[in-house]
């Protein structure tokens, strides 16, 4: 074992971690609002809207992330007619894929608030959108915070999938260092430790909110 290689490459690993985190934050930041819209669509009385939203969720949740990634990697340039950079197609794929999961969390959160609160809001002359925005969603988000944080952990772990198209997030960075220095054991142990620290801390935070809600 030679841990010197870790110390020497630590800045490089950290820049990989930062990229992973950026990817996570950007994906979550866009796929959560998109998920909210889809969840509201699923709960809509308009058949075409709830049908389309449900289909979206089911298709996305029944496919592996890596396949969706391939899809967007080849599809986005095809649709837009020009080459987009790798990162754009990755991010679009992440946003769309995880929106389906966020939508399910938001849907159960909204349903936990209950129809009587909606009636109270509507009966006071608020529109449906205002009732959602001011009455239902704030309560729903509080109820689903633990599940949302857990989903963000899944997104963070999911960022490793971009390894296959050579984007230098944490895992890919570690792999190239391992190849260059021929020290795979040290590197993969370190990377595992980093993922553990990030994910475990986040899950502790989720548990904290779970207790707070109870």
């Amino acid at each position: 074992m030679d841990w010197q290689v870790i110390i020497a490459n630590f800045p490089l690993l950290m820049s990989g971690l930062v990229k992973s985190l950026q990817l996570t934050v950007v994906s979550a930041l866009f796929s959560f609002p998109l998920g909210c819209l889809i969840a509201i669509g699923r709960l809509s009385h308009r058949r075409w809207l709830s049908g389309a939203s449900t289909a979206f969720v089911n298709v996305l949740r029944s496919n592996p992330l890596i396949l969706i990634l391939f899809w967007f990697y080849f599809l986005v340039p095809l649709i837009t007619g020009r080459n987009v950079n790798d990162l754009t197609s990755i991010i679009v794929a992440f946003i769309v894929f995880f929106a389906a999961y966020f939508a399910e969390i938001v849907r159960s959160g909204i349903q936990s608030v209950g129809v009587r609160q909606i009636q109270a809001g509507l009966s006071s002359g608020l529109t449906y959108a205002q009732t959602m925005r001011h009455i239902v969603l704030p309560q729903a988000i509080r109820a689903m915070l633990p599940a949302l944080i857990t989903q963000c952990i899944v997104v963070f772990q999911g960022t490793t999938v971009v390894y296959v198209i050579g984007y230098s997030e944490l895992l890919h960075t570690a792999a190239s260092i391992a190849e260059r220095t021929v020290r795979p054991v040290e590197l993969y142990v370190t990377v595992a430790a980093i993922y553990f620290i990030v994910c475990y801390s986040a899950s502790r935070i989720a548990r904290h909110f779970e207790k707070g809600a109870a």
Partner: peptide, 15 residues
Amino acid sequence: RRGVGMVFQHFELYP
């Protein structure tokens, strides 16, 4: 609806 106030059995205040 603004012209008709409604009071519910379980209050339905926003918690």
